[in-house]
Write a protein that binds this DNA or RNA. Structure first.
Lengths: 235, 235
DNA sequence: AGTATACACGAACAGGTGTTCTGTGTCAAG
DNA sequence: CTTGACACAGAACACCTGTTCGTGTATACT
């Protein structure tokens, strides 16, 4: 559920000013330039409203960089009505929009503890805690999906970095060849490994091809979920 | 009549950098950013050459204003051919109408060769060759995006596996801290590294935190694009 | 009543950024 | 050889600029 408030007069003015400033000068304005153009005395208020506009997807900001802001296509279209292109593709996109999956980002995953899902279970989530993926990117069932943020460097064996996002599906069992998050009872450790049954043992293979697989007694592992996808956003 | 000297290599480099920076970031660079890009340690030298370029009518400056410079038509025309290639990529933007981005999967990336984009440039794509991502997942500009499939194990230093997908943006320049695909001329190798200017050298840091950064002469690296995202779909 | 949220203001801070000044070396003309 | 224009380096300075903190004021909801 999105609570998208309408733009205030100030925010509309700021947007328009930024647009025309870039048009006139070939570079974005500073916070203080925006402020004096819209009669805002405090830079923090400009900053505040810029952030609001950013949250609405109308502009993007580069932190700690002077003039580090940029209008998005969405905002540009408000001023450049003539710039529509390729109507043909529009229908295809319209169909595709419906197949957008919104996956809750429910917690984090680290080596030292089992996956921590909020006690409430799956319920209501803020917009910030959702990951949007095209359903075309995900094969198989699309229910029971959730995403976790990886904390720490403990998963580099699995080619997963600190800060990466792991999209998973609730599963207590796994088939051979699937990548799973397993809880190793002996070590009190959660790891990501390729999974394979081998008699009463389980073969766990790191994703890093330079590392050797190892074997664990089937009683000592607990499948916590299947890894569908790993996403890393680089700065 | 003024005696108009030909441009020095430095000035040509500055001009080109400014042009690609504006193209990449939507705003002009600072004096120090230009300096580190062209191996000039002193801001006064950059200032000096900027003034020369200004006298030659290749750019205009706004005094006492950060990022207060702008290429003239005359200078822009020097890069006309390259500009058209960029305009070509705009088709990818046109399809980004909704909140869903359709990014062309244009080829593969491997250690032994530069990024191979189809000679045809960006044009028509099959549906199978498109990657769908929510635009909310991608920060920064959304034009000039393309995706590559990673071939081989040569990128494990960058925590990127065989078969992973890399979403990139066409960029000839990079800011400190960004992950880029760089072509190392000496080694005939393409690698993914975190990028940082350091004087006349470039610091390249592997994503794998257990590995040490190394340094290369700025002349021997060529930024081929910026890595926006790495996506791994597990079986 | 109290609590939460959105919005606004002003001040202060740290680092970014253009400018300026002094000095050094090169090279061709006088 | 001397001179002066040209190109460059380094440091210092003053202002610019984004960020953050504390505070205040409405409005809506419990």
């Amino acid at each position: 559920m999105k609570k998208s408030r309408p733009l205030s007069d100030r925010q509309k003015g700021m947007l328009k000013y930024i647009w025309s400033y870039v048009n006139d000068n070939g570079r974005p304005p500073t916070i203080r330039e925006i402020g004096s153009a819209v009669n805002i005395s405090s830079t923090s208020v400009v900053n505040y409203n810029l952030q609001k506009l950013s949250e609405k997807g109308l502009l993007e900001r580069d932190a700690e960089v002077s003039r580090g802001l940029r209008l998005t296509e969405q905002a540009m279209s408000m001023y450049e009505s003539a710039k529509e292109a390729v109507v043909g593709t529009k229908t295809a996109v319209a169909e595709a929009v419906g197949s957008l999956l919104r996956i809750p980002l429910v917690g984090s995953i680290a080596a030292g503890k089992p996956i921590d899902l909020p006690d409430t279970g799956y319920g209501i989530y803020d917009d910030e805690d959702m990951v949007e993926l095209s359903s075309a990117m995900i094969s198989g069932r699309k229910d029971g999906l959730f995403a976790l943020r990886v904390k720490g460097d403990s998963m580099i064996d699995a080619m997963v970095n600190d800060g990466d996002m792991v999209v998973m599906r609730e599963q207590k069992t796994a088939e051979n060849g699937q990548m799973v998050a397993v809880w190793l009872k002996k070590d009190d450790t959660t790891t990501l490994k390729y999974f394979a049954h081998e008699g009463n043992r389980v073969k766990l293979t790191p994703a890093n091809p330079t590392m050797e697989p190892f074997y664990v007694n089937a009683k000592d592992v607990e499948v916590q979920g299947r890894v569908i996808m790993v996403v890393r956003q680089t700065p």
